Simulated assay, not measured.
Amino acid sequence: MPRKPRLFVPGVPQHVVQRGNNRQQTFFDESDFQLYLECLRLAGEEFGVSVHAYVLMTNHVHLLVTPDSVEALSRTMQSVGRQYVLRINRKYRRSGTLWEGRFRAGLVGSERYLLTCYRYIELNPVRAHMVVAPGEYPWSSYASNALGDFDDLIVPHDRYLSLAPTPERRQERYRELFSAAIPGGDLNLLRRATEQSAVAGTEDFQCRLAQKVGRDVSPRPPGRPVRK
């Protein structure tokens, strides 16, 4: 079945996955992680993309973002890809591509699935058995969202801000979310939506968005397994 065109709706959060070409390594030392984050911050500010959560793994990236316009996310990721690859190739005296042909992105309904997506992203190093707890991994937004560490890349989403009226209580409530496992059905829906450029959301949210964009936005039923 042909791949759906990517769906971009201004003001609706998106879960973005960018993978290394052939699953190859994309970050080689600490300065590379820092460079990617700086490229992302500058591009997001230029093109109008707010970053709510992220994790940089050794060969792929997960982001939770909200674009201000239809073109904002594509322009941001194109800019990050160009700037990061140019400087990495120069640094390591390499050539050619570093990332897969295009990033994957799926929309996330804020009423239920947004905070699940936050957790899904920041728990990636735990699922990969790289760390025992998300706070042990340095290249994610967990320290900002859960502990209050300053991160000039992060723009809190309204759903996150609604957890509590004060930053301290908000961070406490956020940490409490990590005490329970993410339901398997929610994980699978987020993954399918991202792979298929569809929507992870309630049926009501999917129907309202489908009417707005004039196309089916619900993920196809499970078939062959999607990648983690």
Score class of each variant (00 low, 15 high):
E71Q: 14
C39E: 06
G214T: 07
E45D: 07
F8T: 11
V65P: 02
Y120V: 01
E71P: 14
E176T: 10
G106L: 00
F103Y: 15
A72V: 08
V199Y: 09
R119D: 06
R127A: 09
P222F: 03
H157F: 12
F28M: 06
L115P: 15
S141E: 07
E136Y: 05
T116N: 08
D68P: 01
Q171R: 09
D68I: 05
S140P: 01
F33S: 00
R75N: 11
G201E: 05
R3Y: 10
A43Y: 00
V226Q: 12
C39Y: 02
H60S: 11
E30F: 04
H157R: 02
A180H: 13
L189C: 09
G106H: 06
R175N: 13
T97K: 05
R159G: 11
S74K: 10
S31K: 11
Y137A: 10
L42I: 11
S79F: 00
E45H: 07
P167T: 15
R191A: 15
R23E: 08
R90T: 12
Y120E: 05
P219V: 03
L37T: 07
F27M: 06
L86E: 10
S74D: 12
T66E: 13
Q14H: 14
H62K: 06
L40T: 06
K4T: 13
F8H: 05
G106A: 07
V65F: 04
S162W: 03
A105D: 04
P13D: 13
Y92V: 02
V70E: 15
D32H: 12
G96A: 15
E46S: 07
V155P: 03
A143N: 09
G135V: 05
K228S: 13
L153R: 03
L123D: 11
F33N: 03
D152K: 13
D32W: 04
N59K: 06
P138H: 02
L187H: 07
